[in-house]
């Protein structure tokens, strides 16, 4: 278990190091010059341009040698200092992000966890049951192939506009301020439901199909055939198959994290939901580079932490990792 965890941790630390480096390198060594872009947008006279350039270079810490800039960047990251947002000037990027995070998590965590549980249960149940299996396959694959934003758009249009049951923008009504009153919570849930449902549904298809395929695979395995030959009740064999099939699904969850994050970003955009995804859209449209860099770093850290949680769950579920019977992942 120690070996397993240290290996994983080493990878996460390396990844974090790499991610911070990417975050630092890309703005500096990509074609195009953000400072130049900002100056040309300001439409200044020639002398003023030089003064402003000097000011920006200093403000962004670009007036020291490159290696120094890199070190400074690390120091700033550890101080949680991600610069100042241009679009929401003069709010610091870290504050802007922290205000958006609760909304993103409120969507992401329930949608991911619930769809994983429900999808696995349903997939295992449907496997090798003729009618259910025949409907699950096409529907599940189609759901899994649906772009997140499109399902979001469809739900918003059907339930938000055509039927008018749910609001399609924001996390709560314009006339409310966040508080812990019952009225606000109900209003919040009312706004939360559609984006949650669209995130849930796309993932549900994927998990159900994955589980269905794994269970069939396990039911074909020698141990299942042997149990069947012994006359073991089918329900029991299926239960063993389910438990074995669950392990790859946990690994699958870790592998899918990146895709899920991308999905939640576009879902938030469709529903103008004030989380990280919506923030990213604003940052891109306003060319707020510090905000983009901050969101990038934040997503990486979030995904790394989620990976760590999945690893720990894996250790709890699979005794082999605890007893050091698996050399590597």
């Amino acid at each position: 278990m120690k070996r397993y965890l240290t290996r994983k941790l080493a990878i996460y630390i390396l990844t974090f190091f790499l991610a911070v480096t990417i975050d630092w390198v890309i703005p500096r060594f990509m074609p195009g010059d953000p400072v130049q872009t900002m100056l040309s947008r300001a439409n200044l006279r020639a002398e003023a341009v030089e003064v402003m350039r000097g000011y920006y270079l200093k403000a962004f810490g670009l007036d020291v040698p490159v290696w120094r800039q890199y070190l400074n960047f690390w120091v700033a990251v550890f101080h949680g200092d991600l610069g100042v947002s241009v679009y929401l000037f003069p709010k610091p990027v870290s504050r802007v992000i922290m205000e958006a995070v609760p909304y993103s998590l409120a969507l992401l965590i329930p949608a991911t966890v619930l769809s994983w549980i429900a999808g696995n249960k349903f997939g295992a149940f449907a496997a090798r049951r003729k009618w259910l299996d025949n409907t699950l396959l096409p529907v599940g694959y189609l759901l899994n192939a649906t772009p997140y934003m499109w399902l979001g758009i469809l739900l918003a249009w059907a339930f938000g506009i055509a039927l008018g049951w749910f609001p399609i923008a924001g996390a709560y009504g314009f006339d409310r301020t966040p508080s812990l009153s019952l009225g606000f919570i109900l209003d919040f849930l009312w706004h939360w439901f559609l984006p949650f449902a669209s995130l849930f549904l796309v993932q549900f298809g994927g998990w159900a199909i994955g589980m269905r395929n794994m269970v069939i695979y396990e039911l074909e395995a020698d141990y299942s055939q042997y149990l069947e030959a012994l006359g073991t009740p089918r329900g029991l064999i299926r239960r063993y198959a389910f438990r074995n099939a669950l392990l790859p699904q946990i690994t699958g969850l870790a592998l899918q994290l990146g895709v899920i994050v991308a999905g939640s970003v576009v879902t938030e955009i469709v529903f103008s939901y004030p989380g990280i995804g919506y923030l990213i859209l604003q940052a891109i449209q306003n060319q707020d580079y510090f905000l983009i860099q901050g969101c990038f770093l934040f997503i990486i850290i979030g995904v790394l932490l989620a990976n760590l949680v999945v690893d720990i769950v894996y250790i709890v579920v699979d005794p082999r990792t605890r007893r050091g019977m698996m050399g590597e992942s």
Binding site: I11, I22, P31, G32, Y289, I292
Partner: peptide, 18 residues
Amino acid sequence: IVIVIPTFAVLLIIAAYL
């Protein structure tokens, strides 16, 4: 390492600066 890094985030930051 590449598995853990969310692809989308990397594409995002590269595309934003191109």
